[in-house]
Design a protein around this nucleic acid. Structure first.
Length: 603
RNA sequence: GGGGCUGUAGCUCAGUUGGAUAGAGCGACGGUUUCCUAAACCGUAGGCCGUGGGUUCAAGUCCCGCCAGCCCCGCCA
């Protein structure tokens, strides 16, 4: 009901001006904001929308809130267009004005939604029709080459994918960038070590698998920390690699390919699409970053390192806190790469992405880092007007003990194992239910349902939480059949699919929808909120708001389903109710799809 | 020492630009099945919104202090 809200807001503002022409003109002249503060009703008993601004106006106009409310209400009722949408405004409490949408209006809105595959969500348009939309970069997932994806990559991957899906649905061109850690000192270590113990791995594709690579990496790191000679040859190796030595580059590429294949398996299971553009991509732009910062006068050499000292952030010893741009040994580090990435992403094609919004989905622990890097980018004037650059932080994944999630042996949890376990548990639950209900299903069905539910549960549990807080991971809770979980939502869809399976033909000859039960109106009102939710998530980047909405929709639907006969009624009631089922089903499917969750017909 | 995030029911969490009597789920207790998947629905109990101030007609929400937990802090990412 976005459009309805906007329309009503105009009517209410006009009514306010009409009721208090002098006062409002006078207040505006004095720079005071005259806002009726129209918002969604906080409770169903208050109707659909409420006007909250009367109290602030009471002060400005020096009149009682109730008197103002009465005057606005009176003016609203003079407007026939308003009367077509709303019932007579109710003045409640000390001076709230409650607006309730007329049933006829709701009926026409829901009828329009029935024939709209976007379910009322508008497609974004460029401000100037001659221009094309500028892309949005969503930077997420970002595992490190030569390491396995672990639970730490879960949230970034799932949340980033959902944000990207929502922006895509709105019509933005979205660049889903996987900023993989494919460069830096670790490769010097790894290549040096492999030269010693497994040289064939550096010349032959698929010679070792990722698990071995991870083990080699660990050993290389250990040796690096304890062996001076190894250290210097590792550093040498990095220099060779950065200088473009053919042999080193070939080895590096092989290692990257090996990791890439493993990452892709996970992304395929999660149905996540990403464009890989690792840190190495920005190598060629690092020098420009340094030069730019230097000519902007931002660079200071401190203890041999080239730094930008941050404004407003005091570090150790009361000194201004630095962002290190170039190390004493001439090497660059991640801040430099991130700065190069910002510059590239915001620059116009062909030497950049020409994006207008950059979204970084990483853990909250990097908040300081990003605020520092963003500050440097701003001061270097790399962020054009109208461009947004945002860190979208999320909390840690914790175990039941409230500490960082680990395996029983204390090791990091591999993402692959975590997904496997979710699916295994879903399968186990399903088989138990089949036994209890005496149902027989073939293996294919069981696999499909278990996989869908398992992955859905993992994703939904993560997304349904406000991302800023730490997140307590629990298989039991996420796979629970009741409550705000993926299985509950999927079940609502299955119920609708069950109705459709009864062989009932949807009867399009019924032109006029007819509703009379409160459960129907509740469902209609809920269905009409979808567009508002999507736009809110687009702005706030909080997918849990969408989850919350889908859960509430499922609850309202389940009440409707439970308390109102759908098939056992006469026309046009039956088709009207089937229409509600249809829109509910579409909304849940679209909504879950925006969360990256696939749905089922039976479960 | 500095910085960031968090603190809401027994547990896990929502809480929209500050709005009316703070919400959900789980767990607990009680009820509902001639009907479309009961994996559901209905009801009961459960709160000093960490704490002390301040701003406001109005504060869980904004500002300041304090307490507790987690995370980060110069050449790793």
């Amino acid at each position: 009901m976005l459009k309805t809200y906007k329309t009503l807001n105009t009517y209410v503002t006009n009514a306010l001006d009409a009721a208090f022409p002098e006062e409002s003109a006078n207040a505006k002249q004095h720079g005071q904001v005259i806002d009726p503060q129209l918002g969604r009703a906080t409770k169903a008993e208050f109707g659909d929308f409420q006007i909250n601004g009367v109290f602030a106006l009471a002060k400005i106009f020096k009149q009682s809130p109730r008197a103002i409310a009465m005057a606005i209400s009176k003016q609203l009722q003079v407007n026939d267009d308003f009367n077509n949408i709303c019932l007579k405004p109710e003045i409640a409490g000390p001076g709230f004005i409650n607006l309730t949408i007329k049933e006829n209006y709701l009926k026409s809105e829901i009828a329009a939604q029935l024939n709209d595959n976007r379910l009322g969500v508008p497609i974004v348009q460029p401000q100037n029709p001659k221009e094309t939309l500028k892309p949005i970069v969503v930077d997420f997932s970002s595992p490190n080459i030569a390491k396995e994806m672990h639970v730490g990559h879960l949230r970034s991957t799932i949340i980033g994918d959902s944000i990207a899906r929502i922006l895509e649905f709105r019509g933005y061109p979205v660049l889903r960038l996987n900023h993989v850690g494919d460069w830096g000192t670790q490769f010097g270590m790894l290549i040096t070590y492999l030269k010693l113990v497994a040289p064939h791995a550096l010349t032959t594709a698929n010679a070792i698998d990722l698990g071995d690579l991870v083990a080699f990496y660990r050993k290389a790191k250990e040796r690096f920390d304890n062996d001076k000679e190894f250290q210097s040859s590792s550093r040498n190796e990095v220099v060779k690699l950065q200088a473009g030595d053919q042999e080193s580059l070939k080895a590096w590429k092989l290692l990257c390919d090996q990791s890439r294949k493993e990452f892709q398996k996970i992304y395929d299971r999660l149905a996540v699409k990403l464009t890989e553009r690792g840190e190495s991509f920005y190598n060629q732009y690092l020098k420009d970053v340094v030069d730019d910062l230097n000519s902007a006068g931002l660079l200071t050499t401190d203890n041999g390192a080239k730094c930008v000292f941050l404004e407003g952030i005091i570090g150790k010893g009361g000194q201004s806190h630095p962002v290190i741009i170039q190390k004493t040994d001439g090497g660059f580090n991640y801040s430099t790469t991130d700065l190069a990435a910002i510059r590239y992403r915001l620059s116009a094609a062909p030497i950049g992405d020409g994006a207008h919004r950059l979204i970084y989905v990483t853990d909250a622990g990097q908040a300081n880092h990003f605020s520092g890097v963003f500050q440097v980018a701003k001061r270097a004037k790399w962020i054009p007007k109208g461009c947004r650059i945002e860190h979208v932080p999320f909390g840690l994944v914790q175990g039941d003990d409230g500490k960082k999630l680990k395996t029983r042996s204390g090791a990091t949890v591999r993402l692959k194992d975590l997904l496997d376990e979710a699916i295994d548990r879903a399968r186990h639950d399903l088989e138990q239910r089949l036994r209890e209900e005496g149902r027989k299903e073939d293996g294919h069905f069981i696999e499909k349902v278990a996989t869908t539910i398992g992955i859905a549960a993992v994703k939904y549990a993560d997304l349904s939480q406000n991302r800023t807080t730490n997140y307590q991971f629990s298989f039991n809770r996420m796979l629970a059949l009741q409550g705000n979980t993926a299985p509950y939502l999927l079940y609502a869809l299955v119920r609708i699919a069950g109705i459709n399976r009864k062989g009932v033909q949807y009867n399009p000859s019924v032109m006029e929808l007819d509703f009379k039960e409160p459960q129907e109106w509740n469902l209609i009102r809920e269905l009409l909120k979808f567009d508002e939710v999507i736009l809110e998530v687009e702005e706030e980047l909080l997918p849990n708001r969408l989850c919350n909405y889908l859960f509430e929709l499922s609850q309202v639907f389940n009440r409707f389903y439970d308390q109102i006969p759908i098939l056992n009624t006469t026309e046009p009631i039956r088709t009207s109710r089937l229409s509600l089922c249809r829109i509910t089903s579409e909304t849940l499917k679209v909504g879950l799809n925006l969360l990256g969750i696939s749905t089922l017909e039976r479960m």
